[in-house]
Design a protein around this nucleic acid. Structure first.
Lengths: 169, 169
DNA sequence: CCAAATTATATGAATTTTCATACTTATTGC
DNA sequence: GCAATAAGTATGAAAATTCATATAATTTGG
C-alpha cells in the first residue's frame, strides 16, 4: 500500500530502500548512541533514588569535591538555574552541602556529605563495571577506538573543558 | 577501597590535575560529545523557530513520511506522551498533519505538509553541510572512524532500530 | 466468537525546566 | 578610587515534561 508518489524530488526512494539521512547523520548517531548506551545504567541510577543530573553531580564531586555551581553546571551538562535548584534539593536530602567561597563571595562551592560520598563511590564503582561490560560486548576493537575518538572530538569542540584544574588564579 | 582496577592508577586526592573518573567515562564522553557537537547546529535549528525535538521529527519524516507516533517517538528519542503534544503543536503550526491509519485505527500517522517539507529539506541540507565541516575539522581520521563505531554500538545495543522498514506486516 | 492481553494514543495533574532578569560581588579601565 | 562591566548565583512565572492512567482498537488463545 501507499506507493510514495507525492514526493517530487525524492532521489533515494524505491530501490536502495534503506538509509535515509537520519540513520547516518553524525549528530543523530551521537545522541542515539548516548541514549542507548546509558539507558541501562540510568535505570540503575534511578533505582538508587537519583535522577540522572544528580548522579552527574555526585560523580563530578567524587572527582573534584568543592566545585562551584557554574562549572559544575557546564561539566554536568545542566543549565545553571536548573542546577541551582537541583543542588538545593540534594542539600535537603543530605547528599551535598553548599558553602560560600571565602575568597570570592559570589561563588558557592558544593561539597559531598558522607552520605553523598558513599553513594557516589558506590555508583562510580558500578559505573566502571558497567562500562567494562559494555566495552567487552563490542568486539572488533570498535569499543577501544571509540573513547579516544570521542575525547578528540570533545577536545576540539570544547577545549576549555580539559585544562582548567585550578578554581582560582 | 576497591583494589581491582585496570584503569590508570589515579587518586581523587586532587592535586596533580589528572583525569578523574568522569573525564574518561564512556557514557560521559558520549553525552558530552553529543552535546558539544550539536550545540552549534541546535542554535541554527532554533533560529528557524524549531526546538530540537521538532527538528528531529521533521528530519525523520523527511526520510519516512507517514510514520506513526510510537515509532517516531522511539527514533526521535522523545517520550510518547510528550511527542503526542509536540505533534499537535506542530500541526497547529502547519508543519505536519495527522491522519488515522485506516488499516489499524489505533495508529496515527504523521505527514509533512508542504511547508514542513520545505523546512525539513532546508535543514537537512544545512545539517549535511554542518556535518561535513565538523568531520573535516577532525584531522587524523578520528572523524572517519567515529561514525562506524557509533553505528556498531547502536546496532549492538538497540538492534530493533535498524531493520524495520515496513510499518505493517 | 469471546475474554483477556496487548498495542497505540491521549490526557490530567504534579513536577521540572526554561527564560529573563534581579541581585551581589569582583574586575577592569581610566 | 570610581564608574562601568563582568561573573556567579538565585528566583518568578510561563512552558514543557513526566507519570500514571484512561480510552480505544487489535491480537491471541481457547
Amino acid at each position: 500500500m501507499q506507493p510514495p508518489q507525492t514526493a517530487p524530488s525524492e532521489d533515494e526512494t524505491g530501490d536502495t530502500g534503506d538509509k535515509g539521512f537520519v540513520s547516518d547523520y553524525l549528530l543523530y548517531l551521537l545522541a542515539a548512541a548516548s541514549e542507548a548506551a546509558s539507558a541501562q545504567f540510568h535505570v540503575h541510577v534511578r533505582a538508587h533514588g537519583l535522577r540522572v543530573p544528580e548522579w552527574r553531580v555526585l560523580a563530578w564531586l567524587h572527582d573534584r569535591d568543592g566545585e562551584m555551581i557554574t562549572r559544575l553546571a557546564r561539566i554536568s551538562l545542566i543549565e545553571q538555574s536548573r542546577l541551582t535548584r537541583i543542588i538545593i534539593q540534594m542539600e535537603d536530602r543530605g547528599l551535598v552541602t553548599r558553602k560560600g567561597d571565602t575568597s570570592d563571595r559570589r561563588r558557592v562551592r558544593v561539597h559531598l556529605t558522607d552520605t553523598g560520598r558513599q553513594i557516589a563511590e558506590r555508583l562510580v564503582t558500578d559505573a566502571r563495571a558497567h562500562e567494562s561490560a559494555l566495552l567487552a560486548q563490542l568486539e572488533g576493537g570498535d569499543g577501544a577506538r571509540l573513547k579516544p575518538a570521542l575525547a578528540a572530538l570533545l577536545a576540539r569542540l570544547d577545549p576549555d573543558r580539559q585544562t582548567r584544574g585550578d578554581p582560582d588564579s
